[in-house]
Structure formats: C-alpha cells, structure tokens
Design a protein around this nucleic acid. Structure first.
Lengths: 159, 159
DNA sequence: TATGTCATGTAACTGGTTACATGATTGC
DNA sequence: GCAATCATGTAACCAGTTACATGACATA
C-alpha cells in the first residue's frame, strides 16, 4: 500500500477504534523501510511508492501485537464536565448528556450496518473484525443506557 | 489547594476518567496565578503555596466547562490487536480478551463500592458525582458482556 | 482551463509523561 | 538518626496533530 492508502484504510475500516495522521504515517514508512521491515513494491507500472511487508517485517508486526498494552491515562471530557455539574446547572448538564446520547446512537447505527456486512463476509479475518465491531456496539449501547439513567438522575435534582 | 493536593484529588476521586501529572500541574498553577485566575491563599500559618480560585477564575472555569468537547482520536490497543487476530492466533486472542475481562471486573468492583459511598453522601454535588460513577459502571458492564460474547466468537473459529 | 482528488512530505507546535533534583516534615 | 511521605519544581523527551507546500492526474 501507499501511505495515502494506509491512511484511507485506517480511517475507513479502523475508524471507530484507531486513527493515524499523515504526519505519523510518512515518517514511519521511511523509518520502516530503512529498518528493512517494509520494501518498495516495484510493480514497475505504478509510479510513486507502494510498500509491502518483508518477512522480517511481518515477524516484527506479530511481536508488536504480542506486546503488553500500555494503558493510556483516562481523559473523558463529558464526565469531567458533569463532575462539576453543579457549577454548570442542571439544564446544561442535561444538554451535555443528550449530546452524548445522540453521538452514541449515531455510532450504534453505523456499527450495526458494518456488523451486517462483516457477518456475511467470507474473509477468514472476518470473525476477528467482528470482535471489534461488537465491542463498539456494546460500548455504544452502554452509553445510551447510561445517558437515559443520567437524565433521570438529573430530573431528580431539586436545586 | 496545593499542587500536590490537586494531584491527589485528581488521582483519588477523578481517577477513573481523568489524570494529570505534576509536569502539567505546577506550570499550570504558575500560569493561572499570573493570569489572576487563582491566588495564593495566605493562611499565614501553612508554609508553601496553597491556592484558591479568584472570582474571575471561577467565572473562567465555568466558561471552560461550557466549551464544546474536543473528541480525541480513538486509540484502542485491545481492538487493534484483535483486528489482526488471525496473525496472532485464536489462543492469544482469547488471552487478550480474558485480560480485558479481568480489568473490567476489577474496575466494576471498585466502582460499585464508590457508588454506595456517593449515594449516601449528603453533599449537594453528590448527584453529579454519581453520574460519573454510573458511566464507569455501565462501561465496565459493557466490556464484561462484550468479552463474554467475544470468547464465544473465538470458540467458533475453526482455524 | 479550472477544479477536485490522489499523493507525498515537512515544520512548527501542543499536550503530555518521565525522570530527576531538591528539600521539608513526620513518625518510628 | 532514618525512612517515608509531603511537596515543588524543571528539563528532556515523546507522540501526535495541524497547517502548509508541492505536484500529478483526471474530468467537466
């Protein structure tokens, strides 16, 4: 793939759980080529630079996938705002929750469509892809359930 | 509060949805004081520097809380690994899922305890805090449900 | 010929962590 | 007297985005 195609693939198929910018991708491709983990695919016909994994590159990839997961520090802007909700007032909190609810519903719709596609895909990778889609769906449904409960709690605040 | 106390408060009570390091906190305190948003609380007795919000600082805080939320680019290491699960093999995938399950269960346990505490708290902020706790619980339960389903899917892969 | 998409790349900046240096205070 | 914790801060570094510069190629 070319750097451009890599970007496309990431935003289109990993979009709901991963992202990379060009500023990461192109320097990374240069470094990976230098390290012999990828090489320029000399198809001859296509201009420019499309790359493919070398065998050591593939081995390296598998090692990377095996590495323990760095748990990134949590940062949830919605919850931070709600934590200080009393400064903001119940109404503004309600609109924050409603926003989150709308986002979750939109995301669930998208994912359901993807789910159907992946389920009928005969690619041997498809079951693994399904795991990621299903995770997104569970998360979206949880957000929807939470938002509903949250609105009830907000209604119960006298203030 | 002092910078140290701010750090403590963040890790102890916002821990499951926010984090800050000293490298952020101390420079921020200096900047905020310069901008007149906080001031040194001259209690006289305590040495060092404990700060409190000024009235403009409080106003500024509310404005910050009102700001639209920057949606950070998603990055989920667990799902990235599972997406390439075929390279890794079903067994390694299973252990990744089991790990996630264990983390979610531990987190749910913690949050349930916090939930009980917050629910019996008479502080007028408590209902807002409950919103954040409840979000964590919903998210943890969703992860548990997903993991269970994921293990079933993995069992169904012939390979 | 102009416009849009494909395509590659770099530089500046931002947000953030980590590691380190330093010292005061408290309790054993 | 010593260890642990409280406490403040800085410097180096890292990951990552954004904005910009550039240009090929297709098509209306």
């Amino acid at each position: 793939m070319s750097g451009y195609a890599v970007r496309q693939a990431i935003t289109e198929t990993l979009g709901h759980f991963w992202s990379e910018s060009f500023g990461q991708i192109y320097p990374a491709l240069a470094r990976l080529e230098e390290e012999g983990l990828i090489r320029r695919a000399g198809d001859g016909q296509t201009s420019g630079s499309t790359f493919c994994l070398t065998t050591t590159g593939r081995r390296h990839l598998v090692n990377l996938l095996r590495e323990p997961m760095p748990t990134p520090p949590p940062r949830n802007g919605t919850l931070l705002r709600l934590f200080f909700g009393r400064l903001l007032g119940v109404d503004e909190c309600r609109s924050i929750v409603i926003d989150a609810l709308a986002r979750a519903e939109a995301s669930l719709d998208e994912l359901s469509a993807v789910h159907a596609d992946v389920e009928s895909d005969t690619d041997p990778n498809a079951p693994f892809w399904l795991l990621t889609v299903s995770a997104g769906e569970h998360s979206a449904r949880a957000q929807i359930a939470w938002a509903t409960e949250a609105l009830e709690i907000l209604d119960g605040i006298a203030d």
